[in-house]
Amino acid sequence: MTPINYYLGLGALLFAIGTVGVLIRRNLIVVFMSIELMLNAVNLTFIALGRAMGSADGQVIVFFVMIVAGVEAAVGLGIILAAFRNRLTVNADEFNLLRW
């Protein structure tokens, strides 16, 4: 049997990779994919911890995370579409109206 810690470590690693993706990529769609990656890392952690505690609540939370991820992807991609229509780009650097 694989120790739970290994799963948690894998979750941390995937989360870190997702963070890096959010940070370094300029394509908003890839940024979004990286966010999904981070969500999945957390999902895995939930499942692992739930398994460690012998409780199914972690799975329920993952279930909700999935729903919210779907919602977030739909709305986010809708926004990207609308933004693309205005700027003809999905380069994150081009969207910086919210500044000083």
Partner: peptide, 17 residues
């Protein structure tokens, strides 16, 4: 981040129920 979390994980011992 990975370092910190790993440092955590090496100090915790969780067994599967």
């Amino acid at each position: 981040l990975v370092g910190e979390l790993t440092a955590f994980l090496t100090r915790t011992h969780m067994s599967q129920q």
